[in-house]
Design a protein around this nucleic acid. Structure first.
Length: 221
DNA sequence: ACCCAGGGTCATA
DNA sequence: TATGACCATGGG
């Protein structure tokens, strides 16, 4: 058993090996699970600090009411929007955030107009919307618009810190830029990598030492 | 009954 | 800059 270097250093080699192990253990994750690009950006808000199964219920309710279009959400009162998203929790907060986001999108000229934004400007615009923080913005950039932005979440931070690639107390931008600097700029890779980290986090270790969780984390040098 | 989930904002020191 | 309170449902 090799010991972890635990030198808190990111390297392309180590990030790639971690990715390979995750992919071998869990396979392709097919993110983001949605029928439309607009559904992705709505889901990105609804999933804030919320289990995905609850988001699915809210999304289903929105489809049922034909509310998964930009115009229909912009026309709808916030109180009315809060009703179908109730199962995803924080429904008053999220209704307001969705209204903020959709108003911004419309102000940019609609969903099609967003494609023409350069990634830094797009990201800055999203972060300017009240209720859209770095992780939600990056979910939207990567999973709805295929931009090469690495999504950092608490699982990413925990896993990289546990394996000794980072300290763990770095701020969001430091981690995102550090990871991006050590991976090829490939949206498909970023897509699968983040999804695999989330998948791995949900894996319960059976303690036997030969489960997928242990395979990914074991003797990582 | 308790804990957490695919976060973010705001008030306070 | 750095904590803490707050938002709220549903599954383990």
């Amino acid at each position: 058993m090799d010991k972890y270097p635990n030198d808190q250093t990111l390297s392309e080699d180590r990030l790639k090996r971690l990715y390979n192990r995750l992919y071998e253990a869990y396979g392709p994750q097919h993110w983001w699970p949605a029928d439309t690009r607009f559904e992705v950006i709505v889901g990105a808000v609804l999933t804030q600090n919320t289990a995905w199964v609850n988001v699915e219920k809210a999304i289903a309710g929105l489809w049922r009411l034909n509310l998964l279009t930009l115009d229909n959400i912009n026309r709808l009162d916030q109180q009315m929007l809060a009703v179908p998203i109730r199962p995803s929790g924080y429904f008053n907060v999220k209704a307001r955030r969705l209204k903020n986001l959709c108003a911004w999108v419309a102000g940019q000229g609609g969903m099609e107009a967003l494609e023409k934004l350069d990634t830094p400007g797009f990201r800055a615009g999203l972060l300017g919307v009240n209720g859209i923080g770095p992780e939600t913005a990056d979910d939207i950039l990567l999973y709805a618009f295929d931009r090469p932005v690495f999504v950092v979440d608490t699982y990413t931070r925990r896993l990289l810190a546990k394996l000794g690639l980072v300290k763990g107390d770095e701020d969001y931008e430091t981690l995102r830029l550090g990871i991006e600097a050590n991976l090829e700029e490939n949206p498909a890779l970023f897509n699968e990598y983040h999804a695999l980290i989330v998948r791995h986090a949900k894996q319960r270790c059976d303690g036997a030492g030969d489960c997928r969780h242990c395979y990914v984390e074991g003797t990582f040098g």
